[in-house]
């Protein structure tokens, strides 16, 4: 402002001097002043052009930042969504694989256990000499069959346990995928904060967060250690206490 008013005064002074010189008949001196005047106008024009160039340069730079954001939102976020979907698929697969084995082996264990118990009680009768020879011969055959079944069953259990063990490999892969998504979220956060700062509209962070959290229809889901929602109970015991205080 002071610059431009200084400029105004300079113009005014020169204009007055031009009139004076013209009135006094010194046309040559007046010409010289007119030239000076136009030169000073050129100078301010160059200054303005310089300012514009700087602004243009700055916006180009912030556009570069925008293109980082474009890249994040255009490719990396959808990519991250796919990766997280993959995590769900992998954990789902591992859980089902494990449960398949368990569902398969539990009845086998129950059968073997039942047969063993039966043979055990017969054996006890034999030890108390409370058994006819015919019945004993039958028992011997049963024991032989049982031992064979037991052997095969234990083999199946061992295979199943190995299968369950192998099904845990999802942890490694999903862990890596989730770490990468966490990194992406951090990158996005940095870019967004920069953008907000550069556009000069730094919002009050807490207000935004609070209004999102207060949405009554949104459910909080599982409590994450270290990120507990306020007003949440910390386990089954507190749920029971709360319900019993309500007359349950």
């Amino acid at each position: 402002m002071s610059d431009s008013s200084g400029m105004d005064e300079e113009y005014l002074e020169k204009a007055r001097r031009i009139i004076d010189e013209v009135e006094s008949g010194n046309i040559e001196a007046a010409d010289k002043l007119v030239e000076e005047l136009s030169r000073s106008r050129d100078k301010s024009l160059f200054q303005e052009l310089g300012k514009l160039t700087r602004e243009f340069h700055d916006s180009l730079n912030s556009f570069k930042l925008d293109s980082k954001l474009t890249e994040l939102t255009g490719t990396e976020i959808p990519d991250a969504k796919e990766r997280l979907k993959h995590v769900i698929e992998m954990t789902d697969k591992a859980a089902h694989k494990t449960m398949n084995v368990v569902e398969d082996l539990l009845p086998l264990c129950e059968t073997l256990d039942g047969q063993g118990e039966e043979i055990h009680s017969l054996w006890q009768r034999f030890m108390k000499r409370d058994m006819e020879p015919d019945e004993f011969r039958k028992l011997c055959k049963e024991i032989e069959v049982y031992l064979e079944e037991q052997h095969q069953g234990t083999g199946r259990v061992k295979n199943g346990l190995t299968e369950i063990l192998m099904a845990q490999d999802y942890q490694d892969i999903t862990g890596q995928i989730i770490s990468r998504v966490i990194n992406l979220v951090s990158d996005l956060e940095v870019s967004l904060v920069k953008l907000i700062k550069d556009s000069g509209a730094l919002m009050e962070e807490t207000n935004g967060v609070a209004s999102a959290k207060n949405d009554k229809n949104s459910l909080d889901g599982p409590q994450i250690p270290g990120l507990e929602t306020s007003g949440a109970v910390s386990g089954q015991d507190e749920v029971d206490d709360l319900l019993s205080s309500l007359g349950f």
């Binding site: 889901g221 749920v239 309500l246």
Partner: peptide, 23 residues
């Protein structure tokens, strides 16, 4: 459920739930 906010447990009780287990 994994939901364990007090107001949600109260809401469920008021809606007439018979039991509430948190995951």
């Amino acid at each position: 459920t994994a939901e364990q906010k007090r107001e949600q447990i109260v809401e469920a009780a008021q809606a007439g739930v018979n039991g509430y287990i948190v995951k």
